[in-house]
Design a protein around this nucleic acid. Sequence first.
DNA 1: TGACTGTTGTAGATCAGTCTACAAGTGGGT
DNA 2: ACCCACTTGTAGACTGATCTACAACAGTCA
Lengths: 343, 343
Amino acid sequence: MTTQARTRAATINDVARVAGVSRAAVSKVLRDAYGVSDAMREKVNAAIDELGYRPRVSARGMRGATFTIGIELPNLDNPFFSDLVSGATSRLLGEPYQLIVAPASPANAEGERAIQALTDRQVDGVIAISPEVEQSWLEDVAAAVPLVMLGRHDDTREYDTVVGDDAAGTRLVLEHLLGLGHRRIAHLTLPESVTVERPNTTHGVREAAYRRIMADAGLAGEIRVVNVEPDPETVYAATRDLIDGPDRPTAVFAAHDELALTVLRAVADAGPAGGDVSVVGYDDTWIARHPLISLTSVNQSGQHMGGRAIDLLLDRVAGRKHPVHEVVAPRLLVRESSRAPTA
Amino acid sequence: MTTQARTRAATINDVARVAGVSRAAVSKVLRDAYGVSDAMREKVNAAIDELGYRPRVSARGMRGATFTIGIELPNLDNPFFSDLVSGATSRLLGEPYQLIVAPASPANAEGERAIQALTDRQVDGVIAISPEVEQSWLEDVAAAVPLVMLGRHDDTREYDTVVGDDAAGTRLVLEHLLGLGHRRIAHLTLPESVTVERPNTTHGVREAAYRRIMADAGLAGEIRVVNVEPDPETVYAATRDLIDGPDRPTAVFAAHDELALTVLRAVADAGPAGGDVSVVGYDDTWIARHPLISLTSVNQSGQHMGGRAIDLLLDRVAGRKHPVHEVVAPRLLVRESSRAPTA
DNA sequence: TGACTGTTGTAGATCAGTCTACAAGTGGGT
DNA sequence: ACCCACTTGTAGACTGATCTACAACAGTCA
């Protein structure tokens, strides 16, 4: 009893033969197309069940649709991205589309490669979160397949966007901290290659808003932006530098929760010697709500954004031509990680 | 300047025409097949670059390979699954294969549907984590495409498995707790449909080991298994019932970290009135290591398991016929969430 | 009765690749 | 000069679906 050779699965021709109809007829039943009598539908479905037939998506993709929607994510570690996927998945329940996730290798900026991997696979639509990719490149992609970008404030006619109101969210954070009495508020965010050089990304907008609001509050001299690669070691070291250095900030506004968690870790490890440092995140991921973490954060409902991205994409697939740029309102959730500075 | 119609991308015929060679020749270059002169390779590659040509994976899938490996996951919320994916992704760097993730809708047990979605797409190999799926069904899948299952102790010749030594891991946990002086140790785990009814799954093995080890320690009377659906609300409520009920356990062994976090939350919310309850998890996810969480947990290196799964799958793709069942040794990481019971 | 319309099913082209079989060219050995 | 083996390139079948065009038939109405 050894492992058999790969079994040859049933094809549409087998179904046609068993049902005693033409291949085209089976195809019509499969696609629920016009011109099928009840009697035929029944015969065909019986044959499909009998053979355990499943259409090959590759073959379908040659002419028609693949009924596949691809979503590109920078990584799977950030719980906010899981929220997006879970929102997309639930919105897709009942639709004939399957969602597949292409994680961009966490190594170097592989967003382009991952998006291309999806279009190579003839997906019917793409959702992506690539801050580092050029708008013009995305417009080329959008010429070939419907595209919805998350977390980009791009002004374009070629694809749709779903994005939080990052300026408003940043304002919520800073007004909260300023209201508590903080003055030395640092902003820890991604490298300048995705903030300064990409002013249309979430993190670009957040950093710019931080600078503007601080200046407007008469705190131009206190502006302190720490741009770091988002791997935990680097973030940890940068935070320790902040804490141990001169002019220790009384509050750190981290550009997203995953960063904020590492900041919290560094602060906790520093102990009382590190002083009292408030920490605020962004995204309100589930872990921020945990009572042992209790991280103040801005909610922009990843679930909702993921669902809306699907809505827009399905619209595009259905033929919509004009662009839609949707902005999600942020909400501040105040928790224990932020409090008035001591003295 | 309105949105254009979808542009028609270059095909292999276009490349052949521009390069002045046959379609078959281009195909050879693409596949790096035998019988290509340097001169031709150069001409073809130049044409490919000029046209920005990318082969359609759908068309390739009709006869050859899709260079795609699919991984099915129950959900993306559990950070352990992210570890698996990230391990798989890094192992795949440099290989010509693209990884795509098919999340089984978090709703009802959709593992079968997600795995089928992958095979429908002609992936060259499948990695999956479906505890609730029948072994015989998986053997049918494995007859059509190389398959590696994670977290299953199945004894089968048809597919490979990568799994932690769950009995040993459970023993580490219980010896640790017993050594600290705990006697009333409860086990919080998934519903009986994936433990009792599926004794070959991680959680089935862990529950059985818990029962055996408790009995061997003369604590048969203290055995207390709480089987719950893994959504946070249910887990939270079940934990509160444990804490608030009679015979409050002094320790809770949660079947995985995600459950343990919710248990920690319920314990924290209960406050001092809830008594001193130690909590132990399983998987040693990154959040368990956070100093504010500091959850004692069993490490079985998701990164490593994901990487090994890819190794085995590539072996299978390369032609290996005999099964490999790989067992990963567990390691206990003791942290602050577990301590001696108070009196 | 004949023309017209609408429904139901089929034939056959088509999609973009891979793969097999083979022809043509090259070089060496005897 | 002839045979043989090897290298390089091509022709054309093939994959499993969808999609267009059309034939056959039934029913309606003048």
